[in-house]
Design a protein around this nucleic acid. Sequence first.
RNA 1: GGAGAGGUGGCCGAGUGGCUUAAGGCAGCGGUUUGCUAAACCGCCGUACGGUUGUAAAGCUGUACCGGGAGUUCGAAUCUCCCCCUCUCCGCCA
Length: 425
Amino acid sequence: MLDTKFIRENLELVKTSAAEKQFEVDFDALVRLDDERKSIIRTVEELKARHNRANDEIAKLKKNKQDASALIAEMKSVGEETRKLDERLKTVEEQLHQVLLTVPNVPHPSTPKGATPEENQVVATWGEPPRMDFPLKPHWEIAEHLGLIDFEAGTKITGSGFPVYTGAGARLQRALINFFLDRAGERGYAEVMPPIVVNAESATGTGQLPDKEDQMYVVTRDDFYLIPTAEVPVTNLHRGGMLKEDQLPLRYCSYTPCFRREAGSYGKDVRGLNRLHQFDKVELVKFVHPGTSYDELESLRGDAENLLRELQLPYRVLLMCRGDMGFTQTKKYDLEVWSAGQQRWLEVSSCSNFETFQARRMNIRFRPAGGKPEFVHTLNGSGLALPRVVSAILENYQTDEGTVMVPGALRRYMGIDVIKSPAPR
RNA sequence: GGAGAGGUGGCCGAGUGGCUUAAGGCAGCGGUUUGCUAAACCGCCGUACGGUUGUAAAGCUGUACCGGGAGUUCGAAUCUCCCCCUCUCCGCCA
């Protein structure tokens, strides 16, 4: 959410940004409602000031045992008038709030203009797609052959998009989680394990509600939501908080399962591990001083990239154009890993700066030494989402014998160097 | 799930309808004293939203805010109702 004052003072910039991000906002209503709000506040506060003075007067009269009934009668009608105006003000503020929730964040000047994914800029590529002289299989075939994932069992237990990892497949999940968390810890992120079910306030704080409600699983009986990412509970750690300046930057890493309904997805995009309803992810979240947030974004991206390098997986980095960036971000990088069996790039991380957009919603501030409280900047990025990393490992490390080599960095976590077919029972 | 006690500023903590402009303390900021540090003493010390002065930094001024919401009253931290949370005890339980 942006500050009303900021919007009013930078109306053209905010309008242009909203158009570039392809969101429709009723700015006329916004200006009209804000004007009405101010004018009501002015009248109502005058009335209340009068009322307060009269109350002091009444108190004095009563103390001196004098008659105050005339003044009391007058204040009765003033009170009535005030109540009516307060009601109107509440309506106007509610309407204004609804419009404000539709105003997207303003992109950073360094982000490219553009409306479609094709206009995202490739700002870095690393590694070479493996060249192999045998037909490459997609990961779902490899996983089936090696007994790593049981998609059918998951469908039976829950539904499609809820795979069961088995044997070395399950161990690979655990190895990746530990590897990601260990690396994040080495780079200064404090590990947290938060609830994976959150209340409506938390879901609103990070911007999942109201607009992305359809993408979340809802526990209706208790009015809870299954988290779509650890970003939600971890960012809410400091909701309503006043941080000390010397605490900043705060860096957290967190492993959680993530749940997404993915309503409307279909086709080859959802094959195998490409798009799941439940998946595992290690998320990196930062609360930083406003002056440093773009440096912190670069280091966040570097931390995520480092994981792919250690795994020796070829990847590229996209700087998202304004039209493809999303509602809440000012700048966003996507990391895409090369998936040799499918011959395509798969998104495994998304690193974003939100500046004060989330902090304002959640009221997360810090107090500079001797100064007034300011909103922190928040950032987050995946480090990393597991399923597509698993796809890439299976596909890029496959051999012509049907086995999969374990990436060097994971061997001590896996305890083996090669994933082979389980011995027949 | 049941019974009881609580929720007050960044923190601790007083406050049972108008003398509260939320006491007092801690922390923080400024100053005096001072070889240095510390201590002592003095002063300042909330947030949000308006209005207004000013080029600005900022100042002046009003309103609201004592867990959240609703109510009673001329007037609510204080009384009433609903909800949330914390603590103690009981029940259930990995």
